[in-house]
Simulated assay, not measured.
Amino acid sequence: MRIVFVGAGTTAVATARQLISQGHSVIVIERDAARVQELSGELDCGLIHGDGTRPDILREADTSATDVLLCMADMDQENILTSLVGQVENIPHIITKVQDPQFEKVAIALGLENIVVPSRAMARHLVDLIESQDTLEASPVVKGDARVFSFIVTPAQAGPLSALKLPSAARAVCLYREGHMEFVDAEDKLREGDEVVVLTHEAGAAELHRRLSKAPEA
């Protein structure tokens, strides 16, 4: 896959490095010239110095051939704007990093679906490590062929979970609603803004993404 990062912070670079090692084509766009120079000796990928919120800069990464856009800059506003530009450029998959819950709500209202809140993910994992230390092992990664994804329910996806018609190799495990976790089954009704966590086999990941990118059938 061809994957474009906008922003070159620690998490973005670590993710880019792993994707490069797996054979993916990676481009990193960064507005800080010194950071671009620093990364030129660290990453075996394309580097573009510029403002990723600008359509002309984003097009330098060849948006027509891009499979995934990761908006990973320090400012939430910048990531949201870059994501919207990516939508205009018809990039199939866009991942938006936000830190502030206020901007998460804005991103959802603007129709951005793949929203990552790093502080929340880290907090959940730390709590799991603390609470499971005497009983269970809280694995920091999903092992083997298993993959975990989450998505924010759009207005078109609101309704019975069964209407999403997830692949046979995928299961909705739980959802987060107004900050609280709830287990789900097929007949539970999803609400706009719910974050649904799905466990799937690696082989079914592409099909899962394809189905979730479409509105449920009537």
Rank of each mutant, 00 (worst) to 15 (best):
T15D: 06
E113P: 01
S64R: 15
A65V: 02
F149E: 14
L39E: 00
P140F: 04
F149V: 09
D185C: 05
E60A: 01
G179N: 13
K97S: 09
R2F: 07
A16R: 04
A34F: 02
G86W: 00
R59Q: 15
P140I: 03
I94N: 10
T200I: 13
S168Q: 15
A109P: 09
V117E: 14
H125K: 10
P155Q: 04
R147N: 09
G52H: 00
V36E: 06
D67V: 03
V196D: 11
E202Y: 07
E178D: 15
P167R: 01
V106I: 15
Q22Y: 12
E195L: 12
V36P: 03
F103G: 05
R191S: 12
L58E: 00
E30Y: 04
C174M: 09
A206Q: 15
I57Y: 00
N79E: 05
R211L: 11
D62T: 09
A169N: 08
L208W: 03
D128V: 05
F5K: 00
E187N: 10
R120H: 13
K97M: 13
L208Q: 03
C45Y: 01
L126F: 15
R2N: 12
V173F: 04
F151D: 00
G46E: 10
T53A: 10
A169E: 14
D62Q: 14
R191N: 12
S21Q: 14
A169W: 02
T200H: 04
R31A: 08
L70K: 08
L19Y: 02
K143R: 15
H24V: 05
A8Q: 06
L112S: 02
L112Y: 06
I29S: 04
G50P: 09
T82Q: 08
C45K: 01
A158T: 05
K189G: 03
G111Q: 03
P101L: 07
L19G: 06
K143N: 11
L126E: 11
I3R: 00
D44L: 08
S21W: 06
V6A: 11
H49K: 13
D76T: 05
L161G: 04
Q37N: 13
S168N: 11
L164I: 10
H125T: 14
E89I: 12
V4A: 04
T53H: 09
L69T: 02
V116K: 06
T154K: 00
V68T: 14
L129K: 09
